[in-house]
């Protein structure tokens, strides 16, 4: 079975994000970028399925600027076999990404597409769901456990009330939650081997997709600064404030 793993290049999770002064977005110039952590979990799961002998080939896909090739290289160093880069400088929103991935899925014919439940930059949590809808495939989102047996994938989902288990017929789309696994470090020999693995570059036009944004970002602003708290003299005063001012009890 072939597995397709879409990986997104995002601002590194350690970076203190700053909003651009004109309010059009987040500053990315000179900022460290890395693979979306949820996508790392997806790569790890794909590699584990290959190590178990269930998957035969792992294809990592990234969409965006030329530097997304580095994100693909990270996936290759973790154990993916080859990469596809859909190169464009255009802003890509979830619907465009889902359409591009659907076009790739039609030619690649993977048995499973596994990707992060959301990207830590815009937190849309939409691509996986849209992709499943466009392909007409079943979806198992927010996976904390997956198991494949024959033509069925069993996905344990983290939902508000607890854990929900769904069984899906393959091919399917699975999005990964934080607790699915702990991604491995790429070893030095694997980093060097990744250099020799192929990455094919294509354009949105070649895939027959118009990636133009359908949503308009009105403004991006920093969250309000936290205000200093107040000190209370007694428990009675605290309870009174919680009841009368905060109205939480």
């Amino acid at each position: 079975m072939k597995i397709l793993v879409p990986v997104k290049r995002v601002v590194d999770y350690n970076v203190k994000v700053r909003v651009k002064t004109d309010g059009t977005g987040v500053e990315t110039a000179g900022v460290k970028m890395s693979m979306n952590p949820f996508d790392e979990i997806a790569v790890e799961e794909a590699v584990r399925l290959k190590e178990k002998g269930i998957a035969t080939e792992i294809v990592a896909v990234s969409l965006g600027v030329a530097q997304c090739a580095e994100t693909i290289r990270t996936a290759l160093a973790m154990g993916a076999d080859r990469g596809i880069l859909v190169e464009t400088d255009a802003e890509l929103q979830p619907l465009a990404v889902a359409k591009l991935l659907a076009a790739i899925a039609k030619t690649e014919q993977p048995g499973l597409i596994i990707l992060g439940k959301q990207a830590i930059d815009d937190d849309m949590s939409a691509t996986g769901q849209m992709l499943a809808a466009l392909l007409g495939w079943p979806q198992g989102t927010f996976a904390s456990k997956v198991a494949i047996e024959g033509e069925t994938i069993t996905v344990t989902r983290e939902v508000d009330g607890g854990l929900e288990t769904v069984a899906l017929a393959l091919p399917a789309v699975v999005t990964t939650d934080l607790r699915l696994n702990e991604p491995r470090y790429a070893s030095l020999p694997n980093i060097m081997k990744a250099r020799k693995k192929p990455i094919v570059t294509m354009s949105p036009a070649e895939l027959g997709v118009d990636p133009a944004p359908r949503l308009t970002v009105v403004s991006v602003a920093e969250p309000p600064k936290r205000k200093a708290g107040a000190k209370v003299a007694s428990v009675a005063e605290l309870v009174a404030k919680l009841r009368n001012e905060a109205k939480v009890i």
């Binding site: 890395s34 580095e70 470090y185 070893s187 030095l188 980093i191 060097m192 250099r195």
Partner: peptide, 15 residues
């Protein structure tokens, strides 16, 4: 190089 940066990242994350 890209590989050197990847090597450094791995060592940094690991440490």
């Amino acid at each position: 190089t890209e590989e050197q940066r990847a090597i450094r990242e791995t060592a940094r994350d690991f440490a």
